[in-house]
Design a protein around this nucleic acid. Structure first.
Lengths: 200, 200
DNA sequence: CCTTTTAATTAAACGCTGATTAATAAAAGG
DNA sequence: CCTTTTATTAATCAGCGTTTAATTAAAAGG
């Protein structure tokens, strides 16, 4: 009933993102609605439109946090002293583990449908690039000095795409059911093949 | 106003799938609604529920056609007399081309959210398997007689996942913008690496 | 201190969605 | 010809994102 400014816009933004994160984790994509988010933070959906342009905007902010968390997970997988081979493998597994442990966030990040003519903002692409660079750094070490930056960039994208495809098809149950052990076997098989192919 | 049986259930099913296909192609995922499909075929949404259990059921039937079409596209890419290397590459490109040329269908197939506890029906998994077998057949030729069926199966999944990841991340604009020529370069780079890695 | 202004918040509304239910109208059976 | 059956629709329900008008409390002005 129309009190004024118990929370600042920034606080409301923060509360909304936190509530959305919680709903997402507990109920999946279906649990994410403007009314639901607002209710979870003790407000009404209309208030959200003071802190975000629309739900897509809110989702984009949520996705930013997912990307940042992912980059952290990938970075933590690297052991600077370890051989690049091992690091690439560790990063790959960290990518897949992150997708499995944050499935709703992963779906919101990679499967959300955007409106016509939507283009990702620059900060979004830049933030994504940080994860890509973690791949590229270790692949650069792996390929050695004679590899061009362009080749390293291609290798990074190739490895990322491979891992992404595994998660998109298998970890989401879309191609067929695989026990976790078989999935791990597939992951190792694919990483082995890729590393051999990139090195050779 | 309740006329009766101008079309049989099978005809209605067919009309619905055809209309849905048209809407999907013309307007994308957002254009797919029970009311829209029904209107496009001169009926009302309620009638759809006589031919399908619900919209998910209709979508599943639609996806079946997409899978069949995909298997045909992959099969057509194979030249029996050609070396397996070339055939694998051709199948990969056919997979990506199919995804690009049937984007809404591809999204409906691979990005649709299903209700809690959903499991794909057996015919769905079997139909998907046909496409996988096209990969596996050529990879079997490539790897030679000394490769175990299990290894061939792994190789098929590895190659499929790699291609799938490329489309999911790049062709849908989700990682960054790449000109088509760069995308083609990435595809070749990745196929080269995989083929080398699998052979070595 | 009281009134007016301002703005945060909500309630209500709009046009959608998938799905269900009751009403309707045409065909089929006797 | 009348009754029963049933395909189809209209109406309804609960929910969605979003916008608008109505509230209501805090801030500002005198």
């Amino acid at each position: 009933m129309g009190r004024r400014s118990e929370h600042s816009i920034e606080e409301i933004r923060e509360m909304a993102l936190a509530s959305a994160q919680r709903l997402l984790t507990e109920q999946g994509l279906a649990g994410l609605s403007t009314r639901g988010i607002a209710k979870a933070m003790g407000y009404t959906s209309g208030t959200l439109y003071q802190a975000f342009r629309n739900l897509d905007d809110l989702v984009l902010q949520l996705n930013r946090r997912t990307i940042v968390g992912m980059a952290q997970a990938l970075g933590n997988a690297v052991t600077p002293a370890a051989p690049p081979n091992d690091n690439v493998r560790a990063i790959c597994k960290a990518y897949l583990t992150f997708g499995r442990e944050h499935r709703p966030q992963w779906e919101l990040l990679f499967q959300r449908q955007w409106p016509d003519g939507f283009v990702y903002p620059a900060w979004y692409v830049a933030e994504m690039g940080k994860s890509l660079m973690i791949f590229e750094h270790e692949l650069g070490r792996l390929l050695g000095a004679k590899a061009s930056p362009h080749q390293v960039s291609m290798a990074g994208r190739a490895v990322w795409c491979s891992m992404h495809g595994i998660h998109a098809l298998y970890a989401s149950g879309r191609l067929e059911r695989l026990g976790v052990s078989n999935l791990d076997e597939l992951i190792d098989f694919q990483i082995d093949a890729l590393l051999r192919g990139l090195a050779g």
